[in-house]
Write a protein that binds this DNA or RNA. Structure first.
Lengths: 130, 130, 130, 130
DNA sequence: GTGGTCTAGACCACC
DNA sequence: GTGGTCTAGACCACG
């Protein structure tokens, strides 16, 4: 019951947000099976070498999103998210990021052509890596 | 000497960051001429209906970035940023946003084709608007 | 966790600049270990008997210089500055001061010999003291 | 009656200080003869394209230092500074700058040898130039 | 008039 | 507890 999560202390993004993002991705992408029991708050905090409070917040937030389910005295499980919702969820996250990029391009007054060139360059250099 | 800036109190982004982003964009896009005198912090704060301190921070941050130049007793001016640096700066901001979108897509396990479809859809719907 | 800093209210140099200079020197000289947690802004302000805001500015400036790293909810730490950069940083500060002295000498029309004599005299009288 | 003074708008040093420093150097180095009439405040401000207030401050400060003398209705003259005082004054300015450099070196924990090497390097590179 | 420094205190987000 | 943001106002230096 080990969840491979990497947090980067140097990033400005708060700890809880980094952990949430990675857990969310693992759940929505199907890497974590429905019904699977997650580590206890205490154990997870131990694994990530962070505060219990941080993990508690992660579990709470994801439960509110409907991705996790908690049963008193038993633990926290991966909730049963239907395939359709999963797809929608995944696309929405990406679309939001794309919207931000488009906004930036318009703010910086790039032409559509310039922006598309930037997009292709980034895809060529960054899509495959890692 | 009126700078058209819109702040949204409801957004999570801090006031000073919203103002900085818009001013930065105006400077880098060439909408504000090099050497031009900006409103005094008092007047600007008045226009935006916010605290003097918030504007002071905006001017200070942008001066540290090299986009503004300020002289005590005289005021704050648009600094002489070379055209080359300006271009680089603009592209960098957009590339960063694109990188974030690509990261999100990979995290959500989209295929390249799926991602490109999302991109085209967003472009069709959102590029022209506003 | 006590940082020995002396401020002189009578000097023209602003409080925050005096504190910054001394902290910067302690960090660059290796007197403060990498990763070490600094006093909280509240506690430090208390120690130095000055405003929280003044300390906040000090921490903020040094973070922007890359000498400190701060995480909300956790505190402010000595950043991991590589030894090479550290050396360069230290030498630069001294070289700047030397350049100023050379400029003064040239402005005052001292000959090279006169300037070197002044240098040796100052070294003899002032290097060891304190 | 033209005094060749160059001010650099980009430097942080205030206008009046830049002008004072250059005038002081010209007087103490003997480039301006004792008894010589300086430009009127208005004319000088015109030449330097700066405010009358700035020049008034320069004249006031240098008069207080004993380097200038003002006669109502006549103008401002170079005061009669004795040769001995002149020498002392010149050396003092340079010594102050040297002291600052020595302080910086000690604060940065350079050894005497390291500091002397920096000094020689700076002399080699910067003494002759311009 | 301009910006720079220092002060105070409230409220929020994070751990 | 920690730092981050925003607010207010006093006083000084510069032009």
């Amino acid at each position: 019951m080990f969840i491979p999560i990497q947090v980067d202390e140097n990033r400005a993004e708060p700890l809880y947000a980094q952990i949430e993002a990675q857990l969310r991705a693992m759940i929505l992408s199907g890497h974590l099976e429905v019904g699977m029991l997650l580590p206890s708050i205490r154990e997870f905090a131990n694994q990530l070498n962070c505060s219990i409070i941080t993990i508690r917040r992660v579990y709470q937030d994801l439960e509110q999103e409907g991705l996790l389910r908690t049963r008193q005295g038993t633990g926290t499980f991966i909730a049963d998210v239907r395939q359709g919702e999963r797809e929608q969820y995944r696309k929405q996250a990406v679309d939001d990021a794309l919207q931000t990029a488009i906004d930036a391009a318009k703010q910086m007054q790039l032409s559509e052509q310039q922006f598309r060139e930037s997009f292709e360059q980034m895809m060529k250099r960054r899509w495959k890596e890692e």
